[in-house]
Amino acid sequence: MTTPLLEVKNLAKVFKQDGFEINAVRDFSVSVKKGDCLAIVGESGSGKSTIANMILGVHPPTSGEIHFKGKPLSPRRRKNERRVLQLVQQNPYSSINPSRRIGATLKLPLKVHGIGSSQDRPGRVEELLAEVGLPASYARRAPSTLSGGQCQRVAIARALASQPELIVLDEPTSALDVLVQARVLILLQELQSKRDLTYIFITHDLAVVRNMADRVAVMRDGQLLELNPTGKIFENPDHNYTRSLISASPVITKKEIKLREKLKAGLVRER
């Protein structure tokens, strides 16, 4: 068996505040193969984002290990350890600095990781914008002139800029309206196959999970309830909680399916 791209072993996080201890994540283990998409689902406060932050090295885990390509990641991440793991956040308006131009935002990862010379960075920014379906002129624009969907595309371009191998998508579509959601998801799927990316997709939207994920981890109160292939989760879940999650999610209408087909055919372009 080949080594998984990312292996998380017995990860736990305890937050201490005013003498209280909160077990945000308890004994979480999972491994992700290269090119896979692992979905982590669960309600708010179930520890999904805490796991994401530990994988990305924002918070050190209380206990447990994170291995990338078979090697343990250091608690204080080195630059090249940060480069390969990137993030797309939920709120595109907050994740893009309002006082910097789009070009400057996209240049940051290039500068930090010394990708390309300073002369060819504007060119690279244009390529990144093109990759997420935005015109090159957007590099000179301020974030306040962009729509939510466009901001999220910029955030995706920024995550791609450092040429990562794994991207954590932390509810990347839940702040967007339905039409824009669909377009962003299609873009994410295209990028995954084109760049051979591995995704960890954090969401509470099960309709999205069915489309994107290869495997699903279901979380509740910081604990992993079940980890199964997407097909099994939707047809025959092991856990009652998973069943109640699925039954609570809205059903896709025929109209939406039609729209999705149309989008996939590339008939509707975002501008």
Binding site: R82, L87, Q89, I96, L108
Partner: peptide, 22 residues
């Protein structure tokens, strides 16, 4: 608490950059 600070941290930008430029 804004997302752009988290984004810069994930990218690996220095504390100086985050404080004075972001």
């Amino acid at each position: 608490e804004e997302g752009y600070v988290l984004a810069a941290e994930v990218i690996g930008a220095s504390k100086l950059h985050i404080m004075f430029i972001e």
